[in-house]
Every structure is written in structure tokens, then in C-alpha cells.
């Protein structure tokens, strides 16, 4: 049994919030660079150049990459041999978000009452926390500062099992076409197949945490990822919806067993501002 103070979690979360918002991960920057090299239209090149310049400015001058500094989504892998002292884990995470957003001049974007615009909580709390018990005596924290514009274009379908891979690709392509420039392409698509209604949605978000472009370990799933990205990039939506073949930077798929009557499919849409950071305590 290892003791971890809740204040260590608070401190780590505060740092993750700021780091995520100022420093676009190198794998995302690299994917944007590759997109820029491949882009054929002038408007696509101009936009991708702006995004690369934006990433540089954000990092060098500590201006948030995007004004939507996101809802703080925290995936916690809690080692079962950890004894957490000094307060509850949810409060510790919220305290970290509060500190990170306030001290980092990040935008508070959370309404206490979804139907009342005047109820901004002022400190971007509460975070959305997904807690999972794992072996070991460490705590691993993954933070995603998830913007609203791309989240709004996400979708969940309860397909008919016999729709198969074809049905999955068709649903995703239709959604991305419909979304156009709204979710800020080039995109990263988190896709989950199987599980049930809520499991699929969660896995689709979790899929976004994988290092960019690293294919699924299972060959069949990696092939489906490839099929989806090719179909999405053939839509012609392009950067900001202004045309081109650079609609998605990556597709990350996760699969889970499911009921024989169901084929849940979830799509979590991530904009190019894929602000993820992790730390192990």
C-alpha cells in the first residue's frame, strides 16, 4: 500500500490543464505538418500554415491554442494498492481544474444549469471524471481539454447488427459531411463499436487518448480504421470545411463485446486542437 496525498493530484491536474492548453502535443503538430505537405489547394495550405503558426505562438508566448479551453475531462487509472489521503479524489481533481484554469487565464466554459446562461461556475468546474481501478500503486491521470464545437458534432448510433462494417463507415461519413467546417477539421475521430449505449460513448472518447496515428493492435480493427479515414478524406470536406482531402488526421477505433441484438457505434469528434496530457503519480 502506497500513500498518495490528494494535494498531489490537485497539483498535477492544475499543471495538466495549463500544459494541455498551451502546448499542442508533438504528434498532433507532426500530423498537421504532414497534412500541410500533402495539401493541394491554396486555401487548405493557408489554413494549415495558420494552425502550425498558431501552435508555435501558443507554446512560445503562452497564449491558449484556442479560446475554447474546453471542458476538463479526466481519465483516472487508480492503482488498487494506493491509499489516498487528505480528501476525496473528485474534490482534488476539481481543485486542480480551478487552480489551473484561474492561474492559467483559461476560459471558464461550464454552466451550472445547462438551461441558464448566467450560471457560469467561473472556474471551469466540475470536471468530467472517469475512474478506473487498475493493478499497482500508482495513479495515472489523462486530461483532455475538450472543446464544445467538435463535441457537438459527435454521435451515437444503435445500428442493426447486420449493418456490419459497411453500415459503420456509412454512418460516420454521413455525419462528417453534415458537420462540414463546424467541428474545425482536420479532425481526429474516436470510434467505438460494441459495448452498449453508454460504454460505446465512453470508449469513443478513450480512443482519442491513443498517440496519434498509432493503429489498433488488432489487424481487422486497424483495417477498419484505415477504411474509415480513407472514406472520410474522400468526402472533400477539408480544413475548415473549405474543401480538400485533409478532413481527418487520424481515426482511432476501439471495440468491445456486445449483445447479439445490438451494434452500438459511437463517434467522438475531436478538432485539430487535440489537447491531451498525461502524468503518473
Amino acid at each position: 500500500m502506497r500513500e498518495i496525498q490528494s494535494s498531489q493530484i490537485t497539483k498535477a491536474v492544475a499543471e495538466l490543464c495549463q500544459c494541455a492548453n498551451y502546448e499542442l502535443p508533438e504528434d498532433v503538430v507532426e500530423a498537421l505538418r504532414r497534412s500541410r505537405e500533402a495539401a493541394t489547394s491554396q486555401v487548405a495550405r493557408t489554413i494549415l500554415d495558420q494552425l502550425l503558426e498558431n501552435a508555435r505562438l501558443a507554446r512560445d508566448e503562452r497564449i491558449p491554442y484556442c479560446q475554447d479551453t474546453g471542458l476538463a475531462v479526466v481519465f483516472v487509472e487508480l492503482g488498487q494498492d494506493v491509499h489516498l489521503v487528505g480528501g476525496d479524489i473528485y474534490a482534488a481533481i476539481d481543485a486542480g481544474v480551478r487552480q489551473g484554469y484561474e492561474e492559467g487565464y483559461l476560459r471558464p466554459s461550464v454552466l451550472a444549469d445547462p438551461l441558464d446562461r448566467a450560471t457560469n461556475t467561473g472556474d471551469n468546474t466540475p470536471a468530467i471524471v472517469h475512474l478506473r481501478m487498475v493493478r499497482g500503486d500508482e495513479i495515472k491521470l489523462h486530461l483532455a481539454a475538450k472543446g464544445g464545437g467538435s463535441e457537438n458534432m459527435s454521435a451515437l448510433w444503435m445500428l442493426t447488427p447486420t449493418d456490419g462494417a459497411e453500415g459503420i463507415v456509412a454512418a460516420i461519413v454521413e455525419r462528417i459531411q453534415e458537420a462540414g467546417g463546424k467541428p474545425c477539421p482536420p479532425l481526429i475521430l474516436g470510434v467505438a463499436i460494441g459495448g452498449n449505449f453508454e460504454k460505446a460513448a465512453l470508449l469513443a472518447k478513450e480512443a482519442l487518448l491513443r498517440p496519434l496515428g498509432q493503429p489498433n493492435d488488432e489487424r481487422q480493427l486497424a483495417e477498419l480504421e484505415q477504411r474509415i479515414i480513407e472514406a472520410v478524406n474522400a468526402t472533400g470536406v477539408g480544413p475548415m470545411g473549405l474543401g480538400g482531402g485533409e478532413t481527418a488526421l487520424a481515426v482511432h477505433l476501439l471495440s468491445h463485446p456486445c449483445h447479439l441484438a445490438s451494434l452500438p457505434v459511437a463517434l467522438n469528434v475531436q478538432c485539430h486542437a487535440a489537447r491531451h496530457q498525461s502524468v503518473t503519480i
Binding site: L57, I63, Q67, G147, G181, C271, A273
Partner: peptide, 10 residues
Amino acid sequence: LIATGGAGAL
């Protein structure tokens, strides 16, 4: 008019 989405720092 359109400005580049996500280019908040720039």
C-alpha cells in the same frame, strides 16, 4: 465572413 477556427492564439 470566416476566420480560422481553433487559431485563437494567432
